[in-house]
Amino acid sequence: MIDILISAVSLGILWAIMAIGVFLTFRILDIADLSCEGVFPLGAAVAAKMISQNGDPFTACLAAIGAGVLAGLVTGILHTKLKIPILLSGILSMTALYSINLRIMGKANISLLRMETVYSKIGNLFHLSDKASTIFVGLIFAIAVIILLWWFLNTELGYSVRATGNNVYMIRAMGVDTDKMFMIGLIIGNAMIGLAGALIAQNQSYADIGMGTGTIVIGLASVIIGEVLFGKRNVFQHMVSILLGSIAYRIIISLVLEIDFKIKIAGLIIPISVEPTDLKLFTSVIVAFALSLPVIKQLSAGKKASKTAKS
């Protein structure tokens, strides 16, 4: 059980970097950028390709970030310059990336078993066990990302990006080119998602063409769980909440996977268990529920109000 929790925490930390990238587009820019489904495996593919050819794992991470920057730039141009709605821009990028990722890898997956990764390098340097070094490296990257982003979002430029997601009319009237701000936000968000892909490929020792499926929903789940459980008073605290939310999400998932019991109805024995393949359904339900909370609250408030009015 402790083992399960530890691996849930380390996965949560690594995936938090992806979730914070989603936070940047979904919460700061207020747009849903689906291209992360292609950018996440893009980062993984670039890093895996380089590492499998005995490249330096840190350089591989930088390359994954660069690939994310390019992908964000393309989605940004589709959306702002070519005026394609953001949902469609994201889908176009994501679809195109499927082919590109296959080109990069040359096949559907690349194994990194026994290759030098950021975890093995830092683990050797500080004499850490595998598990400890995963958590250590994950925390370093996650904290660096949060601090850098916190700094950026509190600069003049960062204020303009935030205001663009809030109210384009206001920020244009204040002399800011909102197209550029969308572009900057998409670039930074996707850079982080590319990095997360690289880190997770190294953690699981392989990159796979299908590993991006569901990333947006996992990212949203982490953002929302973090917000509900830990709040969002300011940008810094908001990002820490997402880090914790991502960990909480992994813990919830691993607990759900433990469900395995039988119920008896009218003499029939029905086994209830959750398979890993059920998780995408489960996550979607969580996100759908969380996103509909405002409506649910309104409905129940309305019912209460009509009840008190009747009585």
Binding site: T155, L157, G175
Partner: peptide, 9 residues
């Protein structure tokens, strides 16, 4: 109307 920089907001 000014250019936004990376100075503190």
């Amino acid at each position: 109307g000014k250019i936004r920089t990376l100075n503190w907001g």
